[in-house]
């Protein structure tokens, strides 16, 4: 990977970390409501995979932990933050909230709150891509615990049978809320479950963005070549609770320490510093710049944006002026 790319990825991941930390603060200040699931610790997953794909062009879908995936696809962080603030300028116009970031222009096809919901949706988008004959692919990011839903098995099977261009990325952070993977799941290594559907699969370190990138490159190339679906498991860890209402009390301190020492930002930063490509001061400057940008641009924009108009609460329920809702008297073309 070229040095300039590494530096850019470091900046993006640092931005992601700071963005999420600022969300945390805004939640405490009650600027953000509802359920809020944050991504610190897992940054290398979204960044490594999407760096290997064509963000903004390939179709991406995920669960409720969705802010960073959208931003890496090209969504304006201002519109993402404004969505969390429930503003009309939010990417889902304040109707969605944290769990429902949507940015179809950048082919970020949404965050969904029901665990396992996106598996078949991703397969369906891949079916559409196949029918159109495009060389885009669909990429579905979900957690480890989601693989215990029936939709996981049903979707992997269909994707394999019909050779659909979909990449399933499992962000395995070892927990589904407070339940550790070995207490809920018979097969701990998630990539092995793809064998049941004769799907190529790999498990790699999800904390090292270069490792993720290399593995994802292989996976993306395979899927794009039309050979069918692929399953990529990334071993990772979330540094915060599952959502804002979770204290993490169920985790062992030792385990947190081990994973804390494998911070994806630190791994990449130290590598660049050791290679003499940047200094710690450069990193600090980068950080300061990011923090200022978040405060002066993103937060400011979100706070100053208008609330949605309650008179428009019923907008977006139905298609507007759809000619087939009221067909002419003789049933002729509308």
């Amino acid at each position: 990977m070229e040095v300039s790319v590494k530096k850019r990825l470091l900046r993006e991941m640092l931005f992601a970390r700071r963005f999420e930390e600022r969300c945390y603060e805004a939640y405490v200040e009650r600027k953000i409501g509802g359920f809020l699931h944050l991504y610190p610790g897992e940054e290398a997953c979204a960044h490594g995979v999407l760096e290997a794909a064509r963000p903004g062009k390939d179709y991406v879908i995920t669960g409720y932990r969705d802010h960073i995936h959208a931003i890496k696809c090209g969504s304006d962080p201002k519109a993402v933050m404004a969505e969390l603030f429930g503003k009309e300028t939010g990417c889902s116009k304040g109707r969605g909230g944290s769990m429902h970031i949507f940015d179809v222009e950048h082919r970020f096809m949404g965050g969904y709150a029901l665990v396992g919901g996106p598996f078949p949706l991703a397969a369906g988008m891949a079916k559409a891509i196949q029918m159109k004959g495009d060389d885009d692919i669909a990429i579905c990011f979900l957690g480890d615990a989601a693989n215990n839903q029936g939709t996981f098995h049903e979707s992997l099977n269909m994707a394999a049978v019909w050779k659909l261009p979909v990449l399933y990325v499992c962000e395995n952070n070892l927990y589904g809320i407070g339940t550790r993977i070995d207490r809920s799941t018979a097969v701990i290594d998630q990539y092995k479950r793809a064998c049941g559907y004769d799907m190529p699969a790999e498990q790699v370190d999800g904390q090292d963005v270069e490792v993720v990138y290399e593995a994802a490159k292989k996976a993306v190339d395979y899927v794009r070549s039309g050979k069918g679906p692929y399953f990529l498991e990334l071993m990772t860890y979330r540094y915060r609770g599952h959502s804002m209402s979770d204290s993490n009390a169920y985790r062992q301190k030792d385990e947190e320490r081990v994973w804390g020492a494998r911070d994806p930002l630190v791994i990449l930063r130290d590598r660049l510093v050791e290679a003499g490509e940047m200094t710690l001061d450069d990193f600090k400057d980068m950080d300061t710049e990011i923090l200022e940008n978040i405060e002066n641009e993103i937060i400011k924009f979100s706070e100053e944006s208008p609330d949605p108009n309650p008179a428009e609460v019923e907008k977006y329920v139905w298609a507007e002026n759809d000619p087939y809702v009221h067909v002419g008297a003789n049933g002729g073309a509308a």
Binding site: G33, G94, R95, H100, D307, P308, P310, V313
Partner: peptide, 16 residues
């Protein structure tokens, strides 16, 4: 309730 999916924004949610 209004016959719509429930919106996120506080001002809209209150209107339902």
């Amino acid at each position: 309730a209004l016959n719509i999916p429930i919106p996120y924004a506080h001002v809209l949610e209150k209107a339902v």
